[in-house]
Design a protein around this nucleic acid. Sequence first.
DNA 1: GTTAGACGTTAACCTAAATTAAGATGTATA
DNA 2: TATACATCTTAATTTAGGTTAACGTCTAAC
Lengths: 189, 189
Amino acid sequence: MRSFRETLAEAEINHSPKLAELKASVKILSVKKGNVLQQQGGINTNLYFVKKGMLRSYIIDEKGKEHIFMFAPEGWLMADGSKDDNPSELFIDCLEDSEVEVVSQADFNELFLPLAAINDKDRTVGMLRRMATMQKRIIMLISASAIERYEHFMETYPDIIQRVPQKMIASYLGITPEALSKVKGMRFK
Amino acid sequence: MRSFRETLAEAEINHSPKLAELKASVKILSVKKGNVLQQQGGINTNLYFVKKGMLRSYIIDEKGKEHIFMFAPEGWLMADGSKDDNPSELFIDCLEDSEVEVVSQADFNELFLPLAAINDKDRTVGMLRRMATMQKRIIMLISASAIERYEHFMETYPDIIQRVPQKMIASYLGITPEALSKVKGMRFK
DNA sequence: GTTAGACGTTAACCTAAATTAAGATGTATA
DNA sequence: TATACATCTTAATTTAGGTTAACGTCTAAC
């Protein structure tokens, strides 16, 4: 990775848009609840923009246990962010009947990223929001108790709470469903 | 956040570089070990590119306990990724005498992000690497035991292990120094 | 209607890691 | 040199959360 100054020294601006190519690279998909869009270990990874419904990404560990990495309701981007060349770390599946737009990782990097940075502040805001979400998540995981993580989640994503089963919330928080149940009971004691 | 198609519909390419402005926006800083570059709660957040040395970002919780969010040795970007308008969540300080390049969050978003996406693949790779690191970190935190997290850290960042005290590694892993000490002993039993 | 799965809750028990405290070593400073 | 301070380790104790299992509710399938 180059430094800021090195970047400047080498910078030459020339950019010819390829709108047709861009348009062709986007596929629209209707996905039924339960459908799996992407497998852990797969090599062709995509980005999914959720127009309607909700997607979920998760891993399955050696003991066969599911751990939810992220929920993506309407307006969110769903993607496996593991390094480009590596196979996908995540499963992605569909929690509600959904409509999504799909772009391959390769197309996104080559075509969308440059375009988005210039013309689509919302797109970069989307990436920044993703980063902010992950940062907060890490901070909660290393510093907060189960109940604090739960309360933070409720405040931040009250919508998601209504739409997914408790056991998935527990999985997202990094605890068992039983522990979440216990912890919820304790709040009103 | 707009969808891919909406983005395309609205896209108009025009981009005039402002190299002079860009250059002026970069400051070079020599920082002594222990210096604090940025405070939790501060409003003027910067991005730091580490040319030499090492930076660290961390929070201090209500009980006064430190939790390390990230290390940034040479070649890494250090930044608080909490939402633009919010005050900084993180302290950033200096673990070794360092040389860093500094750009304000505002300048970065307005000037560097567009430029980098087009001309500097390494820069976007840097952001993607950041995302990949965070993703892996979250997965480890929700699914792996203390010892597994430690072993993963050793494999992934053998360099950092040599350069920072154990208690900071523990803090990064989300465990106490005592627990890390115990866990290290257990590996050779 | 009956049955079989999912889901959520509760409780008994267990374990990993936190807390507290003490001691051993190293290092910077008066 | 002596003092203080930070780091790491070990051990005793406590606690948050995991595991296992039982039970009630709900929904889907027969």
